[in-house]
Design a protein around this nucleic acid. Sequence first.
DNA 1: CCCCGGATTATGTTAGGACATTTGAGGCGA
DNA 2: TCGCCTCAAATGTCCTAACATAATCCGGGG
Lengths: 254, 254
Amino acid sequence: MLDGGQAVMLPAEQLLQPATASSPLWVRLAAGLEDAIATGSLSPGARLEGEVSMSERLSLSRPTVRRAIQELVEKGLLVRRRGVGTQVVHGSVARQIDLTSLYDDLRRAGRVPSTRVLDVTLAQATPQIAEQLGLTSPVRVLKIRRVRFADAAPIAVLENYLPEAFADITAETLSNQGLYHELRARGVTLRVARQRIGARRATVDEGHLLDIGRGAPVLTMDRRAYDADGAAVEYGHHCYRPDLYGFEMTLVDR
Amino acid sequence: MLDGGQAVMLPAEQLLQPATASSPLWVRLAAGLEDAIATGSLSPGARLEGEVSMSERLSLSRPTVRRAIQELVEKGLLVRRRGVGTQVVHGSVARQIDLTSLYDDLRRAGRVPSTRVLDVTLAQATPQIAEQLGLTSPVRVLKIRRVRFADAAPIAVLENYLPEAFADITAETLSNQGLYHELRARGVTLRVARQRIGARRATVDEGHLLDIGRGAPVLTMDRRAYDADGAAVEYGHHCYRPDLYGFEMTLVDR
DNA sequence: CCCCGGATTATGTTAGGACATTTGAGGCGA
DNA sequence: TCGCCTCAAATGTCCTAACATAATCCGGGG
């Protein structure tokens, strides 16, 4: 076998990130492993040290080591096979779709995001919007319309609806940081989101905002995000310039 | 509190699916819980019985119960909060994107899928295709072109590339079942896939096959699927009619 | 009546052990 | 030399046990 004839054993200091951080042990181990993969200490195809051996060497319990490895398996970085071992997957790594905003996505990709807020208005909700937010019909909602730029090029038109409780969100706040960041700052923790990705022709308005021809194709994403209580917090309707943005994800068979 | 003032306690027989099935305990419990949610025995917002209580009542260990619940949390059906408990999420359930083929997707949605195989040819790989499959340049690959129908309406044009080892796949086989089914039948187990979803204008050819106007928007998906060994098995380039198909997924914050 | 602080309850983390199952490789025999 | 069989190694499943931590509830004191 070319790949991983011998199991790779990395020093404990490299695997376990600094003890100063008071995060769970398995998180620190997972971070250490992910780092080792990212920096090339563990190259694609390499066979990992066995769970039992690793737990003894690091003075951790096997469940803890297992939990860390499981994390990376679900991220698509490692593959485990019973009777064989754990290997680093081939191919270049792609980040998984997270419950994050486009703003964070772009920053991580090393691009410079900026936002132009078109309008922030409190208006009567249409029956459709009210239903998406799980509210009874005659209710007012905050409507936000923004254009997102990456390195000065317009890449998306964002339309978001929130319950009236968030009516004090200002256009200024949204210019500086993403909507999700602002929600988190208010103590709202988003837990689950359902989204649908599709495509259609751009409306005249969208075509103008995105600087593409009228009727040009756009990539769309509708998302409903829920609170920890299960209450709908946000309904978003986004559309992207397909030549500048796409959704990448890693699927893992379980 | 309106929702879940009292924890719901379902009978053991309902939660644990038949013992005849020799699947792992946590799988059977997870299936039982998922069933209870699907049938409405556990309605949205309902509070689940605590882990400890449930494990005692079912004569299972807490880690086993935890594993089952964890599964449904990752599927987006349940939400857990420390100090509070576990609740069924609100909103209608949407299936998560899996490592499955479009063929299986449609069958599960209750639609009748069918396939028209355009051509199956063994040809010299372009440098791009070879690179996607992780092969050195001068190599032949199997190229498959199909049109997928759902209830007699064309919804996708599928273009797949496979290593020469699969050259004996015939057009006839592909008419009866999906490509992934055929691969599994040959002992190939797909473990990881990376995909990118985007949009663009349909080519003249695609517009004709999908019965849409030329230049109409199509939803595209490029996927590379890897074997358990980490070897690239398939590279696919699909395009869908956006008015008939979209990608739905559930995101869970961890 | 309001506010604050403990008791309660629930999930989160970690440990340590035992056995089952799958896989690959090496050795033995025909 | 080829094929079968056994064995070792690795992950998968399952158990018991304890402590940590967050959130809520409730009662007492101001």
